[in-house]
């Protein structure tokens, strides 16, 4: 039962590294949305008998992370007309290596965590730690507001993986609430990105600290 889940999780880890290594925003958006779809499929592999409630949550996750959010992000970058992340604080190759290091350490350290025995065999915990860390790297080292949003999404994906440990315990309402929060956050950010672009004629967050009339 765990093997297909682990296979999906390592694909998620691989996507993390590709997200760190590429400079094209469109590619990053595609990678993160693919990651979201894969995460949405995971409950199918964990639960033995799937109920309609979890199917609803799954469908919501896949629809939101795989279609709605990417669509909003694509729209946002089309309107502000940026294609690439030009000057990251840490280069693409070093940040990829950093992400790889984080993944390796997460794999090694998660073994020494005091986990319930049914949680040690699947890679859920290391994958979630690694994804959260990659999200942090994207958030902190990229200068463009859009890429930081992608970092936020990757971070959220990592937390979602961790949440899979509690599958079946979290009520449907909470899961849907989390999805709604995510949707609203991204929605507002996309509007803000537009406004930042109009006010500063750039999405470089380093310039936001300059005072302007």
């Amino acid at each position: 039962m765990n093997s297909p889940l682990n296979a999906l999780l390592v694909v998620v880890l691989a996507l993390n590294l590709f997200a760190l290594g590429t400079s094209r925003l469109v590619t990053v958006i595609k990678i993160v949305s693919l990651q979201g779809v894969l995460l949405g499929l995971m409950p199918l592999m964990i639960e033995e008998h799937v109920e309609w409630e979890s199917l609803l949550a799954m469908g919501g996750t896949i629809l939101l992370k795989g279609a709605v959010i990417p669509w909003m992000m694509m729209r946002a970058i089309r309107e502000v007309e940026i294609r690439r992340e030009m000057e990251p604080l840490i280069g693409f190759l070093p940040s990829m290596l950093l992400g790889a290091l984080a993944t390796g350490l997460a794999l090694l350290f998660s073994k020494s965590l005091p986990l319930a025995s049914e949680h040690t065999a699947p890679l859920l915990v290391p994958a979630s730690l690694a994804t959260i860390f990659v999200g942090f790297i994207l958030l902190t080292t990229r200068a463009k507001a859009i890429t930081q949003v992608m970092g936020y999404l990757v971070l959220e994906n990592g937390i979602y993986i961790f949440g899979l440990l509690l599958l079946g315990v979290i009520p449907l309402m909470v899961e849907l609430g989390v999805l709604l929060d995510l949707f609203v956050a991204i929605f507002i950010i996309c509007i803000m990105v537009n406004h930042i672009n109009q006010a500063f004629s750039s999405l470089d967050t380093r310039r936001l600290s300059e005072l302007k009339e």
Binding site: V10, A14, G21, M96, G104, L107, L108
Partner: peptide, 21 residues
């Protein structure tokens, strides 16, 4: 090109780490 190749090395190396951990 080296980014891609290094990524491939990392994938295979992870595969190994997964086995021995």
């Amino acid at each position: 090109v080296p980014y891609l190749l290094i990524a491939a090395i990392l994938f295979c190396a992870f595969g190994f780490v997964l086995l021995v951990r």
